[in-house]
Design a protein around this nucleic acid. Structure first.
Length: 260
DNA sequence: ATGGCAGGTTCGACCTGA
């Protein structure tokens, strides 16, 4: 069962790129972020034609998350991250596919820091940590996938000082990410490639793709019962180099259908 | 220290993203 996450950065603008990658990569499940489209404008019929059923949570202009599933429809579990009824930003959706709970998340960027946006980032991450603990406690297999907007360690950003003041690399969000790992979640790509340089995002500006000046922001976390089912994984870097590409590349894992 | 790219909306000078 191949599960992928892809910050698409506007699904309508990049629909041809998305469809080409789906045809090439043939993932079974896809978590999408930054749809940047309203619910009404989500291209569900084009995705159906490509063989994927979807659940989505859209928002005008910003944010937006979705879960796609091939052959079988994803069963919606929840819209939105619990813990703040006043939070209207479309950053979280949860669905069940083939006995696995799939969470597609788009965590706040948090820039500039310090400031209200950084405060929102930290508060949102705390809600994620609390909800992840509840999911973990059920014992159900869970995959938390998406754009966490956190560079976990200094090896996950190209050598540079340009990001030193950036919200993505600050100690507090890094502690929050590490607390998820300490609570039993497995960073799938880092587990598969402990020593490799892994980037999933390259800014459009300053030739950062051409220079491979990247960051690792998109992560796939596995609950305890999923860890032993992990077979392989990777980053489809080539997608970032194509015409009209998102500034993120897809990240994917392959897991055994049944418990080993 | 700044701005660089890409796209959005308030249709054109702003904003966000990371």
């Amino acid at each position: 069962m191949k599960i992928a996450t892809f910050n698409i950065n506007n699904i309508r603008k990049r629909l041809p790129n998305l469809l080409a990658w789906l045809a090439e990569a043939e993932p079974d499940v896809v978590c999408l972020q930054e749809l940047k489209t309203t619910d009404r404008q989500f291209p569900s019929s084009a995705l159906e034609k490509a063989g994927y059923s979807s659940v989505w949570l859209g928002q005008s202009t910003w944010n937006g998350v979705a879960i796609l599933s091939r052959d079988r429809a994803p069963v919606l579990v929840r819209y939105g991250l619990p813990g703040d009824l006043n939070d209207r930003q479309a950053r979280y959706i949860e669905a069940a596919v083939d006995g696995v709970v799939i969470c597609s998340l788009y965590a706040p960027n948090g820039n500039p820091q310090p400031g209200p946006k950084f405060d929102y980032k930290l508060a949102w991450n705390e809600r994620l940590i609390a909800h992840a603990a509840e999911l973990q406690a059920t014992g159900v297999p869970v995959v938390l996938a998406g754009d966490f907007n956190i560079v976990p360690e200094s090896c996950d950003v190209y050598p540079s000082r340009s990001y030193a003041d950036n919200a993505l690399v600050q100690a507090e969000p890094r502690r929050q990410y590490r607390s998820l790992l300490d609570a039993g979640w497995t960073d799938a790509l880092r587990a598969l490639y402990p020593e490799e340089t892994l980037y999933t995002f390259w800014d459009y500006r300053r030739n950062r793709w051409q220079r491979n000046a990247g960051l690792r922001l998109d992560h796939v976390l596995l609950s305890g019962s999923m860890r032993e089912r992990l077979v392989s994984g990777g980053i489809d870097r080539y997608v970032r180099g194509q015409d009209g590409a998102s500034d993120h590349a897809p990240v994917w894992i392959d897991i055994n259908r049944k418990k080993v």
